[in-house]
Simulated scan of single mutants.
Amino acid sequence: MPTELEELVGFIAHPTPQIRLVAIENLVSYSTEQPAIFKTDELLPVKHLKFLVRDDPKIAEHALTILINLTADRDVLEAVATDDKFLGIIFEMVTNPDEPNANLIAMLLANLSKWDGLKSILTRRQSSQPRALGSDDLVLNQLVDLFVKGADGTYNKHADFDYLSYVFADLAKHPEIRQYFLKSQDYDDVLPLNKIKVFTDHKSDVRRKGVASAIKNVAFDVPSHPVFLDENQVNILPYILLPIIGGEQYDEDEMNDMLPDLQLLPPEKTRDPDVNIIQTHVETLTLLTSSREGRDLMRKISVYPIIRETHLRVDDEGVQEACDRIVQVLMADEAPEESEETWVGEDKKPNAAKDSDDDDDDGKVVEV
C-alpha cells in the first residue's frame, strides 16, 4: 500500500486547485530530503510537475522549485531535458515579460543545459517573438537578448535572468555553441559574446560568475583567438583584466604600457570579491596565450605586473596556482619555431543549479 507521503505526491494531480496547492507546498522540502518519492510509477510525479508549471502562479512556483531540485538526478534530468514539448513551453514562458516565475525557469534551464542534447537549441526556433525583446525566432538569440535586456528587472519586473549566464557557460562546452557566440547574427549584426562580455562587471555574483565561465569556455576555441583579441571585434582583454586588477600603484613604465582602461585607476578600485571568478579570468588569459600573437600582446600591454600583484594580494591557492601558470608562459623565452600549445583537460561540468566553479586538473586549464 502507498505510504502517506506517496499519497500526498498523488494529490499534486488533484482536479481541485486548492488541494493541489496544499499538496505541492508541503512537498517542496521533500524534493531535496527524499527525492525518490517523485520517481515512482515511471516518473509519473515528474510528468505531473511538468504540467503544473502552467498552473496558478503559486502552484507553478512550487512545481518549478521541485523540478530544479529533482533535475540534479540524472534520470529526472534526462526525462525533463528530452521532453521537446515541455522545452517549447518553458522557452515561451521565460520570454513572456509578465511571467512571474521567470527566474525559476532560468534556474531550471541552467540545470537542463547540463544535458548534452540541449545543444540542439542552436537550431531551435520559436514562433513566439515578444516585440519588446527585439530578437529573431532563434531560441538561443532570444535567451541572450533576454539576459541583456532583462538585467535588473528592466524587461520583466519579476526577474533579472542572472541564471541564464550558467546556461551559456554550460552550452559553451560544445564546439558548435562556441562558434555561435563568435558569429555575427543576421538580425542585429552583433556577436553574441559582445552582448554578454559587459557583465564581467555587475553587482550580481551569479551573473559575473556565469559570464566569466562562458567566456572561458568559448576561449577553448583556439582558432578564434584573433577575434577575441582584435580591438575591432571582441576586444576581450579589458573585460577580463579590469575585474582582476586592484587600486595598487604600478611604476610609470608598467602603467604606460597597460590598456587605456586600466591606467590611472583610483586607489579605491577593488578586485572582484569572488576568488573563483578571479581564477576563471586568469585561466582565460592563459588560454589566450596559446598563440604567439596572444603571448606577445599580453607582454606588450603589461599583463605580467597585474598577474604579479594578483598573486601577491589574493590569498587563495587556486588563484595563485593559476597566476603561476600564466607567469611561466609570459616570462619564458620564445624559440623562433616554437610549437603552439594549449592547456586543456577533460571536460568538467558545474554542479546542478549551483555555482559554475572552475576546476583544476593536474595543472591544466579545464572547461567549466
Rank of each mutant, 00 (worst) to 15 (best):
T3Q: 12
E4K: 13
E6T: 05
G10V: 02
F11K: 15
F11A: 13
H14V: 11
Q18Y: 07
L21E: 08
L21M: 05
V28M: 06
I37S: 07
F38C: 09
T40R: 00
K47M: 09
D56L: 04
E61L: 14
E61W: 14
L67T: 06
N69S: 12
D73S: 10
D73G: 08
D75M: 09
V80L: 05
T82V: 07
P97G: 14
M107C: 15
A110C: 03
T123Q: 14
G134S: 06
S135F: 00
L140N: 03
V148E: 13
D152N: 14
F161P: 03
Y163W: 08
L182Q: 02
L191Y: 11
K195D: 14
K197N: 15
K203Q: 14
R208N: 06
V211T: 02
K216I: 08
N217D: 02
F220S: 06
P226E: 03
D230K: 00
V234G: 06
L237K: 01
L259Y: 01
P267M: 12
T280V: 15
T284H: 15
S291L: 04
G294N: 10
G294I: 04
L297T: 01
I301R: 05
R313D: 15
A335W: 12
E341D: 13
V344P: 06
P350D: 05
S356K: 05
D362G: 07
V366F: 01
